[in-house]
Amino acid sequence: MPRLSERKDQLAAFDRLLTIMDELREQCPWDKKQTIESLRHLTIEETFELSDAILENDLNEIKKELGDILLHIVFYARIGSEKGAFDITSVIDSLCEKLIRRHPHIYGDTVAEDENAVKENWEKIKLKEKGNTSVLGGVPRSLPALIKAMRIQEKARGVGFDWEEKHQVWEKVEEEMQEFKSEFNAADESEIDKEKATAEFGDLLFSLINYARFIDINPEEALEKTNLKFIRRFQHLERSAKESGKKLEDMSLAEMDIFWEEAKKLGS
């Protein structure tokens, strides 16, 4: 628990932020024009910037991006208060009440001996609160497909719909790979049924995401790290080609591969 002096500093800092938000909303031409709708895409952008900082493990940048997201939270709350819909007090109170409800192992008499039990309780309570007819009803439609697959699988697991052993999940991956290969044979030059191949490829990706989840690998994080690694290596290739007086479009794949291998050896 924070010391009393620390809590006073925290409350004073939050009060200062709310005061500045009020002043900006009342005096700044740009801030005065903003709506909940106009802020939406900016909030999404700030969230991705925070994600980048986390992947880079840049703690100073994480601090800055958290500040930007906090600004958006108080901005939405200020607009909500102008509409008479909600304010920052009701936002925080609602959050506190939800956290207490969803942690009955802390604030009630429910027993949760491990992380999985906590997750299962959370999903069951959430389902009851929202009144969804489906366990999957709370998954946002606009989530990127890879993250959506993760959330779907996690929610299904929360009610006991999951594999028991990891080898079963890997067998499913292999099964889906075979089904995809039967629809899209790389050695066969005949025209494929693109719709069927697309469906089988989706099944394969879903099973791989499921396996990653089962062995505690975040597939979104894993793929993004590979994206960043590819970018670093490709940019090394571009720099090396330029330093050699060559253009990528004039180089053979074998020539480019020399610089690519250099990047791998350099740890890029």
Rank of each mutant, 00 (worst) to 15 (best):
T226S: 12
Y107L: 02
S182Q: 11
I192G: 00
R141M: 15
K98F: 14
L204C: 03
D87F: 09
K265T: 10
K32V: 08
K64L: 11
E221W: 01
V173E: 12
A156H: 08
E164Y: 05
L237G: 03
E176N: 08
S244W: 02
E249T: 13
L248F: 00
A197Q: 02
E82M: 07
I79W: 04
I36L: 13
E61V: 00
E171T: 12
D188N: 00
E179H: 10
N132V: 01
L237N: 11
S134K: 07
S207L: 04
I100Q: 14
P140E: 04
E115S: 13
E174H: 05
L146S: 05
K63S: 11
P104V: 07
S142Q: 11
N185F: 00
E165S: 13
E174S: 08
N57Q: 09
A186H: 06
N116F: 03
E115M: 08
S207I: 08
I215P: 00
K128I: 10
I217P: 04
F184P: 01
E61L: 03
F230P: 04
K124M: 06
N57V: 03
Y76Q: 10
G202R: 10
H72C: 14
T19K: 15
E164W: 05
L18Y: 03
N57F: 07
I79G: 01
D216W: 12
E164Q: 14
E164V: 14
E174Q: 14
A117H: 08
F259Q: 04
T133A: 05
I88C: 04
S244H: 09
L205R: 07
E171I: 06
E249H: 11
D9K: 13
A117E: 09
A145F: 11
E23K: 15
E113L: 12
K196D: 11
D52N: 00
S252Q: 06
F184N: 10
L266E: 15
T19S: 13
Y76D: 07
F86G: 01
L205A: 07
A241Y: 01
E123L: 11
I106S: 07
K63T: 14
E97I: 13
L237V: 15
E183H: 04
E221P: 00
K229T: 15
K8P: 07
A12D: 13
R233Q: 13
K196R: 15
I73P: 00
W122V: 14
E171C: 08
F230V: 14
F230H: 15
N227H: 12
I20N: 06
R232C: 00
C28A: 03
E195V: 10
G137A: 04
